[in-house]
Computed example of a mutant assay.
Amino acid sequence: MAMNLHHSLRALTLLGLSAGAVAVPAGASAFGTEPLGLTIGLTPTISSDYLFRGISQTRNRPAVQATVDIQHGSGLYVGGFVSNVTFLGANARQEADALAGWRTTVSGISLDFGGIAYTYPGFENRPASAYDLQYVELAAKASFNISDLPLPAKVLAFLNYSPNYQLESGTGLYVEGGLELALPHDLTLAGRGGYQWIQNNARWGSPDFANWSVSLSYRISDFVLTAGYFDTSLNRGECFGGQKICEARSMLYLSRTF
């Protein structure tokens, strides 16, 4: 997120444990609790930074994160995401997000409809003139696998809406599209591009902005190693009072799926 400037999720937009915000570079494997009809997935991740829609949430420092996903056979699910964060001028040190929604498949298209609450335990909204970091989003995701190409591909689309975005900056709308290609030797090449609109840009701290990324992931058993390049359309002068958290960067992620 941004302070005076935030994030996701979580490769972090968060949706079905996927944020916006670059949080989890690959989907979690899962173990089942069959009597209850539940499937549980857990993915711890370490990364060289924590980006949310292209903007660093740790002021260019490493992050330790975890996601959990609990889904019922009906498609209903709940989940969570936690990470360390560091914002200029704020005492927030942790982010803890709660997710809930419903997943289904229609004509081969995987659909995910849900909501995300972004919270910062321990954050004190002081001084009195400061605006709140915490906010909620409604989220929709669609993905479609294309198997009759030389390389199997997945097309993705995301839509996130907040009635009052972070820092009480009014209506927020985020759209993103992506493409993933399955390469030989357990490699996956992915590209994403998105755009964030904010109603009150002066309160938020930057103009509306685009972000994009390209990454390469390698799966080794239950581990996934991802290297990527990430950037935004914001220059230094537009980036929350001249901070260096919106600039282009290369990143590394290592996750373990359970």
Rank of each mutant, 00 (worst) to 15 (best):
I245K: 07
I55W: 09
L51C: 04
N91V: 08
S250K: 06
S107F: 11
I198T: 09
N160F: 08
N125T: 08
E247K: 04
F31S: 12
Y131P: 06
L179S: 04
Q71E: 15
A30L: 02
A98M: 10
G54C: 05
G191T: 04
E180Y: 05
R192D: 07
S110I: 01
G242H: 03
W102D: 01
D208L: 07
F209E: 03
Y50H: 11
L42H: 07
G177P: 09
P44L: 04
G37N: 06
F81H: 12
W204C: 15
N145T: 07
A66F: 15
A128H: 03
F223S: 11
A128Q: 04
T13I: 03
T33N: 09
N60S: 02
S250F: 04
E180A: 10
C246Y: 01
G20K: 13
N200G: 10
L234C: 00
S162I: 06
K141T: 00
D49F: 05
L254R: 03
D49E: 05
Q134N: 14
L12G: 10
D208F: 08
D186H: 13
L38S: 12
L99I: 15
A2S: 14
A19F: 08
S18E: 12
L216T: 02
L149W: 10
G37Q: 04
A117C: 01
Y218T: 06
S221R: 13
N145E: 13
W212H: 03
A210T: 06
S47W: 01
G89W: 14
I40S: 14
L181Q: 01
V85H: 00
N160Y: 10
G228S: 08
T188Y: 05
G172D: 08
Y118D: 05
I116H: 11
A128W: 03
S162M: 03
C239Y: 13
R192F: 07
A117D: 02
L189G: 11
L111V: 00
N91S: 11
Y120G: 07
M251T: 12
S18Q: 08
E176P: 05
Q196K: 05
Y195R: 13
Y77E: 10
I116M: 09
V64S: 12
G75D: 09
F240A: 15
Y131N: 14
L189F: 06
V22I: 14
V224E: 08
Y120R: 13
A140P: 08
A190H: 13
V85G: 00
R236Y: 04
T257Q: 13
A153R: 02
S74E: 00
R10N: 09
S213R: 08
I40C: 07
V106W: 01
S213T: 03
V214P: 10
S213W: 02
S74K: 00
A153P: 04
S221I: 13
Q94L: 12
L99E: 15
I198W: 06
L12A: 10
D49M: 04
N164T: 14
Y195E: 14
P44K: 05
Q134D: 15
D208T: 06
I198L: 09
A153T: 03
N84L: 05
C246A: 12
D132A: 14
A19E: 12
S217G: 08
V106S: 01
L12I: 10
R236N: 05
E247S: 06
N125A: 12
T33H: 10
L51W: 01
N60G: 00
A190W: 09
V68I: 15
Y118F: 09
